[in-house]
């Protein structure tokens, strides 16, 4: 019974989280804290922190975390599948439409309008991460003291290494993590 509730909760979360992980957070809070009391607000805040620290989409991470706490591994499996299922169904339908009709001028037109928008949406996300790295939780400020110089340096070096030497981005991320981490720990 609990498993069914878990499945249905995360199915709804998966169904209505449009536009990125951040949009899913209020939905998750509503289901997990307000409706089912599976987590307290404090635990929920912890969850979001952890979900941002670990790789993977926030919705999936939340599903696994809550699932395990409520019903062990089966709970995690059920919650994760529930979260992923709406995506699978809807994306499959859209994919079928796309692959079948992509030669149509209208579809081509729509996509040609979307492609540049996608580039800027990725840019927007990137800029958010950059601002988090350089200015921290407080956000942008003209106060020069608030600038994290280590981040700026790491960013510049990482970008250079990526562009000039075409280094594997995963190594670059790990590298900046280890080097940056070491610097922060030593200071």
């Amino acid at each position: 019974m609990t498993l069914l509730k878990l499945f249905w909760s995360f199915f709804q979360i998966g169904m209505f989280s449009f536009g990125g992980g951040m949009a899913a957070i209020p939905l998750i809070q509503n289901q997990i804290v307000n409706l089912h009391h599976w987590l307290t607000l404090t635990e929920f805040t912890d969850l979001i922190t952890i979900a941002e620290m670990t790789p993977g989409p926030i919705a999936i991470n939340s599903a696994t975390f809550v699932g395990i706490r409520i019903a062990g591994i089966p709970g995690a499996v059920v919650a994760t599948i529930g979260c992923v299922l709406p995506s699978c169904i809807i994306v499959s339908i859209l994919a079928w439409i796309y692959f079948k009709f992509k030669e149509l001028t209208a579809i081509q037109g729509i996509l040609s309008g979307l492609r540049p928008a996608i580039v800027s949406l990725i840019a927007s996300a990137g800029l958010s991460v950059f601002m988090l790295a350089v200015w921290g939780e407080g956000g942008f400020s003209t106060n020069p003291q608030s600038i994290n110089l280590v981040s700026v340096l790491l960013f510049a070096v990482a970008l250079f290494v990526l562009r000039k030497w075409k280094l594997n981005p995963i190594y670059v991320m790990l590298g900046s993590g280890i080097i940056g981490g070491a610097i922060y720990l030593m200071v």
């Binding site: 620290m53 840019a123 991460v129 790295a133 990482a158 970008l159 991320m173 993590g177 280890i178 940056g180």
Partner: peptide, 17 residues
């Protein structure tokens, strides 16, 4: 500390693309 360091790297990867 490591995660904080990674943020700069992640920003750079996205910027590159």
């Amino acid at each position: 500390a490591v995660l904080k360091g990674m943020q700069a790297g992640v920003a750079a990867v996205i910027a590159d693309v």
